[in-house]
Nucleic acid binder design. Structure first.
Lengths: 223, 223
DNA sequence: TCAAAAGTGTTCAGGGTACACCCATGG
DNA sequence: CCATGGGTGTACCCTGAACACTTTTGA
């Protein structure tokens, strides 16, 4: 590739991933304790550096895959953090991504081998660098999208009960909802399909299992 | 500053600004024709490169100031574009910002000296690089914020008529509105204050001029 | 038989939308 | 006196919120 912008400054560019999952009914994110300086030992987001011949998006996907073994997930760019002194080591411009994963499906061995842990959103202490701000931005983005896009299903198993779905909404939006109103809205959404399956783990009576049919989404909501 | 991440790849990081303004009632953006390779002569967004000892946000502000002479504007980060081949010259990771300015207040001499021109949104041909995508993302962001945040006033002069305000909404949202309903909503917003001033340029009768009092915003809408 | 979760309709209020006419003034 | 843009109120509908009881079944 020809050199056009030779005289320009160059920067290390990183990606940091806010990985949301549902751990026994609580919204949680994957954190690890840094294994090297700067800020060694501090809780921080899962991150990495962008490489040559790799787009920034691909770098984020790589970090996520290395950690969870998952691909093709809900993953969105949140914001780029570019303050001069944001990294206490050396200057790094970091692009923050957020991902939603189904905790049951990821590769626990990989996560453990990275010393990563699921931490309940409500128990997150101060993080290193500007990672607390990244978490806050990501959470705002999720909340905003949750009401208008079919985001919830990325966090749930393939088959789920309406109680699970409602609890997830309550946890993310941060307020309780009326069961009947919630189910009424679900019933109006043709993408959420009732199956013949029954889940008996949560109640004696058993609850119908539903699944989300994404292929109907365009048909019904984008005309 | 110590070197911690020595072995990492480094990248040129740019900023590109989608600068919106209202040109005789039409939503427009500032474009210029590139004066150097690559893509010399092609219409493109106003951009620049991030420098050492300058945050990414500051780089965007600098580009905007150089071009318009304006500071402290409505300016938001939109998205970071990081594909390997997005710049046909050399690899550049670019952070896109959008800004809203009041066309009457900016420094026309500066704009002309940069060979920049206001182009009606509806007349924008294909732009160089991924700039068309940047414009599209910025427009989506503006539309989304327009309904929930007091964004419109950044595009208007200090004193404006309700007809001007309504036309702006119609142009941005892309659909016409009922005059009475619109004015009803305005009347409910205590930040939009009627003044004693009358604008007689648009009608024989004259229209009341209003102004936006941002200092009341927190008081009424964030409690 | 009882505890624990699943499932099910109706009512009401407030917000948003549709709609048409008079006013003031300069030329 | 008339053309042009400025300004004003009401009726209706529909969406969103509140609300309580019955069903099922394993232990």
């Amino acid at each position: 590739m020809a050199i056009f912008y030779n005289q320009q400054n160059r920067f290390i560019v990183g990606v940091d991933c806010v990985i949301f999952g549902l751990c026994n009914g609580r919204l949680s994110i994957l954190l690890n304790q840094r294994k090297f300086e700067p800020e060694k030992g501090r809780w921080s987001l899962m991150g990495g550096f962008v490489r040559d011949n790799e787009s920034v998006d691909d770098a984020a996907k790589r970090v996520l895959f290395d950690l969870t073994g998952l691909e093709n997930l809900f993953m969105k760019q949140v914001h780029t953090f570019g303050d001069v002194d944001r990294d206490t080591g050396e200057r790094v411009i970091s692009v923050c991504y957020c991902a939603l994963i189904n905790v049951d499906e990821h590769d626990h061995r990989r996560v453990r081998s990275h010393d990563a842990t699921w931490i309940d959103m409500d128990d997150i202490a101060e993080l290193g660098f500007d990672h607390s701000e990244m978490v806050a931005s990501s959470l705002r983005m999720i909340k905003r999208r949750f009401v208008s896009e079919p985001v919830a299903f990325s966090l749930l198993p393939r088959f789920f009960t309406l109680t699970q779905l409602q609890q997830l909404y309550e946890v993310v939006i941060g307020e309780t909802m009326d069961k009947r109103n919630f189910r009424k809205r679900v019933a109006e959404n043709p993408c959420i399909q009732k199956t013949e399956l029954i889940d008996k783990t949560m109640s004696r009576r058993g609850a119908a299992l539903y699944r989300y049919n994404a292929s109907l989404f365009d048909r019904y909501f984008h005309l």
